[in-house]
Design a protein around this nucleic acid. Structure first.
Lengths: 343, 343
DNA sequence: TCGATCCCTTGGATCGATCAAGCGATGCGG
DNA sequence: CCGCATCGCTTGATCGATCCAAGGGATCGA
């Protein structure tokens, strides 16, 4: 506060504080970074001076000397229009908070689709960030391999599906367990013909979630053939897939790989005057805002994004400490947000 | 690329490039910052060396010398659970892209609710950011006044409702025009009894949007008394308000201050077996993902967030140029995304 | 031939913090 | 009383880019 009233617009420096407290610059530096090195009375005197002047270390200078920026790079991938996947919002928020508690800020950057590593490269070369959090792992992950070869510290939100040999740190949510949770929930409600609507086969995440559904069905010796459909992640294709399944397989419940697809199912049911939640149960995936506000509510698998953020930051702290501590992967379990759509 | 293969893990410096290109450090610096000062052939030679070494200026060093970080601070306010307001997502994305084109990155930080300016203060004092984009202006805006007194460059997304004298730069969307657009649309469809469900009176934005509805109604000499309701921004209160209005005022259409409230209206209509879109029209506000994926689609006022981002960055560039150019406020017009809920 | 550009070099200082070495005072054992 | 380690603090160098001032060499026109 103090210096804002002064004539000079430049913030106070370490030297200013030193002069005021009657000590050397280094002592002030120690007061800030290694207080235990100072005698209590000196420390108090320096802290008083710091408070009086409203001193805060200059980031640029500190970054230059210590070769660290205390910034974590995050490529911001927005939700697609017309889908229900707004997980980024909730995730980023807790990430910002958690990182902040550890003294890190999040630096957002945009990526060009044609060259996915260009933006990472630019930030690394200019030493603008200390590490990255990589989230766009839906279809393989060229960034991870590239960052590894570059020896750049990073943690991935998402398993290295395309490369089981990968040794980097990662945090992920067990999608199979989520789908299993959803299917078990429906089975417990008495359903036996439970259909699956998921993504196309080239999606690792989609196949993972699907495996939870099969696992759950097979555990009760129920058939799955003819009950599954794999489509694009849009409301329209979810609606179409549901329509076909209703005609051909007569399911009494649906589990979907996303809330977007689940909305498509609701749409198809509405077309036929079927009362969803009463006549046919529907469960989505991601617990998006859509699931929360649609009349009656859509039962949906909820990813523990807050926990994910905490684990990511924990892993990053390990990587950035000296010596670096490389943790193994962390797999978290989702929960089920039960609402009226599942009866 | 090049240096990543070398034994040394330190990135190349300006001096390295200079040596390789056979020029002085100053010339390399000029090649990067003032290319027009160099003879074309020298420039090419230096650029080759830069490319070969994979050189990129060290941000920390540059920041220290130039007293600029090329970072824009943005407090990340997440959408509330259970509401449909995920505008942040779309807004942040375009902001990151637009800022990136101008050489700026976005630094996210979290704010504590008890002291709204503490986080701003810390970043300013440590010279971590060059400027701020302030978005949380729903109920007055203490940050703006504080930042002004601190002489910190910033642009607000949202008008200075609580202080018309404020001189800072801002960008906003004309909420009244949006509500007017929505109401006119319904009037054109033949509706005359159009109800309004908005926020509590202490919300400047809510009152602004409401004024668009009254303006539109009065322009056609239609009454508004008894047709309006002011509640919390939740699905439940929207539902309740709609229910009361349906009983007492028998409207044939609703205009809402948010998609969240509009979802509440859909809920209330569903409760009574009224077919929305056919029997009763509904229009929401914000064009959230919910509006886009709800079966049939919810007609909604769409804010031009991409334009907002562009204008914000433009204003910031003005503020950060020398001499600073302070632009006046910019008011943008929303559009209407028409879907089946309005017939 | 002289001077005026133009393009680049040279050497240095600077931004503000941290690192590494060093120095005086104190305490303790021999 | 000396030697030596320890504590608490100071001093000079350093990170890498930019800014500044002065000047040198080549080219060109007068």
């Amino acid at each position: 506060m103090a210096w804002s009233g002064r004539l000079s617009l430049t913030p106070p420096t370490l030297a200013d504080v030193a002069e005021r407290a009657g000590v050397s610059r280094q002592t002030v530096s120690n007061a800030v970074n290694n207080p235990e090195l100072l005698r209590p009375d000196t420390l108090a005197r320096v802290q008083d001076a710091i408070a009086e002047l409203g001193y805060s270390p200059n980031r640029a200078a500190r970054n230059l000397r210590t070769r660290a920026s205390h910034l974590i790079g995050l490529k911001f991938n927005p939700a697609q229009e017309g889908t229900a996947n707004a997980a980024m919002d909730r995730f980023v928020h807790t990430l910002v908070e958690t990182a902040g508690d550890s003294g890190y800020h999040i630096l957002l950057f945009a990526g060009t689709t044609d060259d996915p590593v260009a933006a990472y490269d630019a930030l690394l070369r200019s030493t603008a960030v200390d590490a990255f959090i990589v989230t766009d792992t839906y279809l393989g992950n060229p960034q991870a391999a590239w960052l590894t070869s570059r020896r750049a510290p990073f943690v991935a939100f998402g398993r290295p599906w395309d490369n089981p040999e990968a040794t980097h740190a990662w945090v992920d949510v067990d999608g199979a367990a989520g789908a299993e949770l959803a299917t078990d929930h429906l089975l417990d409600k008495g359903h036996t013909r439970i259909a699956w609507i998921g993504w196309r086969k080239d999606s690792f995440i989609g196949e993972d979630r699907r495996s939870g559904w099969t696992r759950s069905m097979h555990a009760r010796d129920l058939p799955t053939t003819g009950l599954a459909s794999r489509v694009e992640d849009t409301v329209a294709s979810g609606r179409e897939a549901a329509s076909v399944l209703l005609d051909e397989a007569h399911p009494s419940a649906f589990v979907c790989a996303s809330d977007t697809l689940a909305m498509g199912v609701l749409h198809a049911l509405g077309d036929r005057g079927i009362h969803w939640g009463r006549d046919v149960a529907v469960v989505g995936f991601d617990d998006s805002q859509v699931a929360q506000v649609v009349p009656g509510g859509l039962t949906s698998v909820r990813q523990p994004l807050e926990q994910v953020a905490v684990e990511l930051v924990k892993a990053l702290e390990g990587l950035l400490s000296t010596p670096p501590v490389a943790g193994p992967g962390v797999l978290l379990s989702p929960t089920l947000a039960v609402r009226l759509s599942s009866g």
